[in-house]
């Protein structure tokens, strides 16, 4: 289940970075329109990845309940980073995405 949490962190981080203020805090400048769209698309893919970690499990009900709780945790992690260490956000998101992808293989 760690996998869907990691995907969730990556997804929320991408959503966060797609917003002008957070992008500026993290990377020093506002994102271009294209980059914002790209980040949102990436977030969507990462959310799909987070769902895919749950799909097909025998105890689907319990898995979905756990998934929604993990999504909240992922969002909290991203908010904590965005508040205290915004510059770490891009690197953490990439690491989370990589780790999630590697663990799904």
């Amino acid at each position: 289940m760690l996998q869907s949490l990691l995907y969730g962190v990556a997804a929320f981080a991408a959503l966060c970075l797609a917003m002008a203020r957070h992008h500026e805090e993290a990377l020093g400048r506002a994102p271009s329109e294209r980059r914002s769209r790209l980040l949102r698309g990436l977030a969507l893919l990462a959310f799909a990845g987070s769902c895919s970690a749950v799909l097909g499990r025998a105890d689907a009900g319990i898995a979905w309940a756990a998934w929604s709780a993990q999504l909240s945790l992922a969002a909290l992690v991203v908010v904590a980073l965005a508040s205290w260490r915004p510059r770490w956000l891009p690197a953490c998101a990439t690491a989370a995405l990589l780790a999630a992808w590697l663990s799904s293989r």
């Binding site: 917003m19 969002a75 908010v79």
Partner: peptide
């Protein structure tokens, strides 16, 4: 949605 990730302690 705008303040979704905003926390300014």
């Amino acid at each position: 949605f705008k303040d979704f990730f905003t926390f300014r302690p």
